[in-house]
Amino acid sequence: MDKRQAETAEKQMVEGAAEAKFVTRGVHVFYGEKEAIKGVDLTIYNNEVTALIGPSGCGKSTYLRCLNRMNDTVESARVTGSILLDGTDIYDKKVDVVQLRARVGMVFQKPNPFPKSIYENVAYGPKIHGLASKKADVDAIVETSLKKAGLWNEVSDRLDTQGTALSGGQQQRLCIARAIAVSPEVILMDEPCSALDPIATARVEELIDELRENYAIVIVTHSMQQAARVSQKTAFFHLGDIVEHGQTEQIFTNPREERTRDYITGRFG
């Protein structure tokens, strides 16, 4: 995609869209010598679901992990370029990674509830960040978070049971509840349904659509159908670069690029 095209695409996206949450320009990620992401420009908007699709190893997860600086935990990783959250570069020295991650929550591929009670799982974030100090406040947060995650009705009578004792789909919704308990502005989801059965997947997808009202959501997915179902914007990654991005409808019905067409029609990937 040449520069001019990118600019028009960008303009199209800006038109009629809500406020931009993340603006990333020229993002490169290196693992030691290996360049995993080669200059990604992408804007992520509030109250929208942005899907990142592409074949395995194309760098979409790596890119996602830049947005809350989870790559910091990888010893050899190095990130260059600018990633602006509400106009502030999150890789700036002044930005505190702990607070950043409170603002940018994340849900992982495999449900990873802590081996604690359901209540403690959800209360963990608010407690460490000091969002609530009184028991009643924490209780309230736990309840609303679980309600938002659509789990409250299933677990309200057994908040003391271990989070790991829930079913896979419930665990993933618990992880979502855990993420929204710290009232983030953005939620990153790294293939959140890949370990779930179809029914649980449907529940989570429904939930994502509901959550869009309050958050900016970025979701990495392998499933084109899922991207088409839940997202408003889609970006197609290939070999560490964005091949094409734009309105989901447009990407899936009328892709500009040959490679995008080949991928969504299943010729490779």
């Binding site: 989870m70 935990t73 992982f108 974030g125 710290v182």
Partner: peptide, 8 residues
């Protein structure tokens, strides 16, 4: 990772 992603 889960804990770190919550800002711990």
């Amino acid at each position: 990772d889960g804990s770190a992603a919550l800002g711990a």
